[in-house]
């Protein structure tokens, strides 16, 4: 079922951010990546609840890592995108591709 439903834009962005960050994806770095790459300034509350939702849908997994002195030893949740998450992203991309197909005439006029 998860493959069938399309992902929300925010969910897509977060999943992509996790993939981009590789092994270093945790709350703070995800927020920064979103701001840096997508220009999205997300409230931290929205970010964490979305991550929880993605976990509930089985699209992301996390493991705890012991925190260093820079965070007073508080643990760090390192996120990875699950296989289901990857295929959900693929599915979303396919949907978008299909929707874009045949519109080249309209967009082709513009130089950029």
């Amino acid at each position: 079922m998860a493959d069938m439903q399309t992902l929300g834009e925010l969910e897509q962005l977060i999943l992509l951010a996790i993939l981009r960050l590789g092994p270093e994806a945790f709350g703070l770095s995800i927020a920064r990546e979103l701001e840096l790459q997508a220009g999205r300034r997300l409230s931290r509350g929205a970010l964490y609840t979305t991550l929880d939702r993605l976990e509930l849908k089985g699209l992301v997994r996390w493991k705890l890592e012991t925190g260093g002195p820079e965070r007073a030893g508080l643990p760090k949740r390192l996120y990875t995108v699950s296989a289901r998450g990857v295929s959900a992203l693929r599915a979303s991309q396919r949907v978008l591709d299909r929707m874009w197909r045949g519109l080249d005439d309209i967009f082709g006029e513009r130089s950029s």
Binding site: F26, G27, L28, R44, Y48, L64, G67, E70, R71, A72, L74, P75, K76, R77
Partner: peptide, 8 residues
């Protein structure tokens, strides 16, 4: 982990 992120 959330507190850790905030602190960092």
């Amino acid at each position: 982990p959330v507190l850790g992120d905030l602190l960092e």
